[in-house]
Each structure stands twice: as C-alpha cells, then as structure tokens.
Design a protein around this nucleic acid. Structure first.
Lengths: 141, 141
DNA sequence: CTCATTTCAGTGTTACTGACATAC
DNA sequence: CGTATGTCAGTATCACTGAAATGA
C-alpha cells in the first residue's frame, strides 16, 4: 500500500471499519437481516412504541430511510404501524412478539461479530480501543 | 443512543469512521477533488507509470472503478493514458506536471484532515490508536 | 485454451437532500 | 403562520459483481 496513505489515521480507520462493517454485513445477511433492521428493532424495544420520526432519531437513521426499512419489518410482521389517535400526522410503531424474538436472535449474531472484530486484540487493548474511539465519534454520539 | 448499540465496537468504529470520512470528503470536495483521485495520484507518483490494473492494486481501488476516476483525472490533465507498445491490452498511465502539482496541493489538505480527525486525542493516545487500528484492518492492509 | 486487461453496466448499503401533502 | 411528520424520489461514495472485447 501507498506510503502516503498507509500511516494516515483516516486510512487505518477506514480499513478497520471496512473489516468490521463487512463482518457485520455478512453476518446479518446470513441471518436474513440488515443493520438498519436491527437498530430499529432495538430502538423499539428500548424506547417502546413511538412515532417514526422519534424512532429515526433514536436509532440514528434518517426519517426518510426509516420508511423503507420499517416497511420491510412490517411486511415480515416484526413491527406494526398504527395511526396515532392524538396526532394525525404520526404513526405509532410497535414491536410484535415476532419482532421481540427476531431481536433476541439478532442480539446473538451481533455479539458474535464483536468477538470476531476484536479478535486481533488483547483484553486491555480492546478496552483501550473503545475508550479512544469514543472520543473520536461525532459530538452527538 | 441505544444501549444495545452504543457500546459495541462495531458501532463506535462506524461512528469514528463516519466523522473521519465526512471530514475527508468535505475537505477534498472543497479542494475540488475526491479521495479516489488522491489515491490514484499518489500511486502514480510513488510507483511511476503503470497499467491501470496495477494502479488499482496499489491504490486499493477495484479495476472497474479505476476507469471512471482515471477518466476524470485525464479530463483535468492530471494524468495521461497511452497504449502500451509492448502489451496491446494495457494502457500506460502517467502523471503530468499538473498532476504532480495537484498531488502536492492535496497532500496539504490531507495533512490538515489528520489533525482535525485526531484533535480529540492527546499525543500518546494518537500513537496508541494507530497501533490498535493497524491490528484491526484486513490482512492485506 | 487460459489468463490478464480495459471497459461498461449494474447492485447494495449508508447517509443525505429536496420536495410534497398533511396536520399540528 | 411556522413547524413537524410521513413519504417519495434522487444523489453520492465506496466496494463489489458480471460480462464483453481484446490480446498475451
């Protein structure tokens, strides 16, 4: 690889992220899901039934992207969309029983990926990495 | 943010990368260029004139993506494509004077970005981060 | 025949923008 | 009125796939 690039923080962050993201991607795909789906399911369980806009804010997904992913979750009966009786603009989104089960299933998938991603590091190294990465994220993280 | 996700290594890597990538993106865009362009220019200078396939291997860019980015570089007179007299399949790609100048200009842009990306960390933290990230990248990095 | 190179066309995710109608 | 919501359409980068034509 290029000397000019190889030692740049931006490059190494990109490489590490590529590996992590590829593992995540493939594992979720093998489990018949996607990261966006997992995030939405997790947000639904942790915060309870909410509007789509709220859901997006909490899952860190743009509200226009929530629409498509939520469509897929609804189609697979993992979530329900109901009109909010108190606010005609909103939908109330709810997790179904099957949605809960799906989330549990994906929790395990995600845990496995963490192990794989961090495999090249020792325990103290992992803790240190987490500490450093937290400082590097966008403010709102 | 979600408890389920907030402390996962994959998530934090993604967030740190998002910030880094956004800064990179915007800085190159403001300079009228793109990361792929920089990588190709850097590969051309560090390895000298080569075929497009070689260029792609060295810059870590797929051969099929090299075509489009190289088109733009050629159009802006930063690089030249000539048929290889010794191998009819290949083009020989060369940096122009203007290409060298462009690379120098972008070198500064990139250096600035590194500073911005690593700004939240102290000096020893930066060194540690680099060390850890190196271990996390794909094997071929 | 097999392999490499260039090129084009297309996929998929993530993240984002702009616009619109609707309703608060 | 201004603001918030849901929706749709479209953009961009990055990474990748497949196929075709050419030539080693």
């Amino acid at each position: 690889m290029l000397d000019r690039i190889q030692h740049q923080a931006t490059w190494m962050l990109g490489r590490a992220h590529l590996r992590s993201h590829t593992l995540l991607q493939q594992a979720f795909a093998a489990a018949g899901s996607k990261p966006y789906h997992y995030r939405l399911l997790a947000a639904l369980e942790e915060y309870g039934a909410t509007s789509q806009a709220d859901l997006g804010r909490r899952a860190g997904i743009d509200r226009s992207d929530v629409v498509a992913s939520l469509n897929e979750l609804v189609e697979r009966s993992f979530a329900l969309r109901e009109p909010d009786p108190t606010d005609g603009r909103r939908n109330i989104v709810r997790l179904t029983k099957q949605g809960h089960a799906e989330l549990k299933r994906l929790d395990k998938v995600l845990a496995d990926i963490q192990v794989q991603v961090l495999a090249p590091l020792s325990e103290p190294e992992r803790a240190m990495l987490v500490r450093l990465l937290k400082k590097l994220g966008p403010e709102d993280a």
